[in-house]
């Protein structure tokens, strides 16, 4: 089934590039786009016109380019597909980053939703299933580099079982790169990365404007140490630290 929102491959590339440029430099000019996509200025102009006609962008010659909401959503979807693919190539197939990126750039336009699903599930599965995991993938790397020799299969399985038991004892602990909202101090600012609060509350937080990409600032903490008062989209919202712990923030 083809969607009425489908765009041609090159158009998707343009949208993706515009989105990235705007995110990085706040403004996008045709010449930036031309440079990144390695195409000539006239062909950029042509593409931009056609995108503007389809209401993906706002554009008039010599002006800055901005994405419409439709365009932004299309760009986001492409980027998400790209990330999944690149992630798979790099992390699972152990392909070099550059090559992974290039191939992902081409495949992102043609992968069907179904196959996309499978990619995502497969990566998840690899992470969860004790028979797979990091060691198994590095084993795959060894296999690729050494012309398909399999020596220590029995030992490997034993080791896997042992690791699984140990992991169960310890409980998982993951390294953190970003902060949780409840860890920030009054005056700290950050951009919301993910709202992982379950159920109705998570949805309500998003509906109140705590969406991914939004800037939040910790205004203050209540006299008894909880709840906290944050500023989001220009107004004050209070929430308990309990819920704040589910919101991932990239401090600015």
């Amino acid at each position: 089934m083809t969607s009425t929102y489908a765009v041609s491959e090159s158009m998707e590339d343009y949208l993706k590039t515009i989105f990235k440029v705007i995110n990085k430099q706040h403004v996008a000019r045709p010449k930036d786009i031309a440079k990144i996509l390695k195409v000539s200025a006239p062909s950029v102009t042509g593409a931009l016109r056609s995108l503007a006609e389809k209401e993906f962008i706002h554009y008039s010659p010599y002006d800055l380019i901005t994405l419409t909401q439709k365009g932004e959503n299309a760009a986001k979807d492409v980027i998400r597909r790209h990330d999944v693919l690149q992630n798979f190539f790099e992390k699972v197939l152990l392909v070099e980053q550059k090559e992974a990126d290039e191939v992902a750039c081409r495949m992102e336009h043609v992968v069907s939703p179904n196959i996309m699903d499978r990619f995502i599930s497969f990566i998840e599965f690899l992470e969860i299933c004790p028979r797979a995991g990091e060691k198994w993938i590095s084993g795959f790397g060894y296999y690729c580099d050494h012309d398909g020799k399999l020596d220590n299969c029995e030992k490997c399985i034993e080791l896997t079982l042992e690791n699984l038991r140990e992991k169960k004892r310890k409980g998982g602990n993951e390294a953190m790169v970003v902060k949780k909202l409840n860890e920030l101090e009054p005056g700290n600012k950050g951009r919301v990365v993910k709202v992982a609060v379950s159920g109705e509350t998570g949805r309500r937080l998003v509906e109140m404007g705590v969406t991914a990409g939004t800037m939040v600032e910790i205004e203050k903490v209540a006299p008894f140490g909880d709840p906290i008062d944050i500023k989001v989209k220009g107004y004050h919202l209070s929430l308990r630290k309990e819920e704040a712990a589910g919101i991932t923030i990239e401090p600015v």
């Binding site: 706002h58 901005t66 909401q69 998400r80 996309m116 599930s121 998570g202 949805r203 998003v206 969406t211």
Partner: peptide
């Protein structure tokens, strides 16, 4: 399917895209 694709519940994604429209319009 959407849950899988976005890695979070579609209701969250839908709500945040509504905000996308709003902030787009406000920017302009």
């Amino acid at each position: 399917r959407l849950q899988k694709f976005f890695g979070e519940s579609p209701s969250t994604e839908i709500a945040s895209r509504r905000y996308g429209l709003i902030s787009g319009a406000c920017q302009e």
